[in-house]
Design a protein around this nucleic acid. Structure first.
Length: 195
DNA sequence: TTAGCGATGGTCT
DNA sequence: GACCATCGCTAAA
């Protein structure tokens, strides 16, 4: 299955993401994602076809989970294309739904459980050694229909400051009015931005 | 409310 | 030894 990565990123907003780790189920609705367009995107790990042990999973098939570590945190991506086009979508934030007590235990705090790429992986129990290279819906990580965003905002990607023209690409998508996003929080809507 | 900055650890050169 | 698609505390306004 081929996909346009930017479309795939927007379609992921509102999807219900569920993990089963250590016997505990945790889930949330996706509220923030970023697209990385591989070979032509200077901010992407696979820019110009760059391929290393770390980013090898980007060259895998649609629906593959790519987990990498950064500053001691784990970040989770969903691969959207294939070996010819190493593109993917970074999951940056979710709205907690099930297993909130487990998330609080894993995080060691009561709030800000999933409003950042490193935070949500810790709350959901996602680890590189456990999940890198697995397929969605064929293991402990599942995606299903969830809610529908009332309005999707486009903005610059976070942490991309020195990548020339790629710095200004509007490849970050958030649910307007949802408080569970990593930056640029606006006044929360009554419905958290869902229809 | 925002800006600055140190801790952090695995991968890459 | 350098590089980072981060986090969370602190200080200042």
């Amino acid at each position: 299955m081929k996909e346009n990565t930017l479309s795939a990123a927007k379609e992921l907003l509102g999807k219900k993401l569920t993990t089963l780790v250590d016997g505990s189920v945790t889930s949330g609705y996706i509220t923030e994602v970023e697209a990385y367009l591989g070979i032509t995107d200077k901010a992407a790990h696979a820019y110009q076809g760059r391929r290393t042990k770390k980013n090898d999973m980007m060259y895998s098939d649609y629906g593959t989970i790519y987990v990498y570590t950064m500053h001691g945190h784990h970040c989770m991506n969903f691969i959207t294309r294939d070996a010819e086009s190493p593109e993917g979508v970074l999951i940056r934030a979710v709205e907690p739904l099930e297993g909130i007590e487990v998330m609080q235990e894993r995080r060691g705090r009561m709030d800000h459980l999933t409003d950042g790429p490193g935070k949500l992986t810790k709350s959901l129990g996602v680890k590189r050694e456990l999940h890198n290279g697995l397929k969605l819906n064929e293991g402990p990580v599942m995606i299903e229909e969830g809610r529908v965003p009332e309005l999707i905002l486009e903005s610059k990607r976070i942490g991309i400051d020195n990548k020339e023209e790629a710095t200004d690409y509007l490849y970050r998508f958030t649910v307007k009015g949802n408080p569970y996003v990593s930056k640029d929080r606006v006044k929360p809507a009554d419905s958290n931005g869902w229809v």
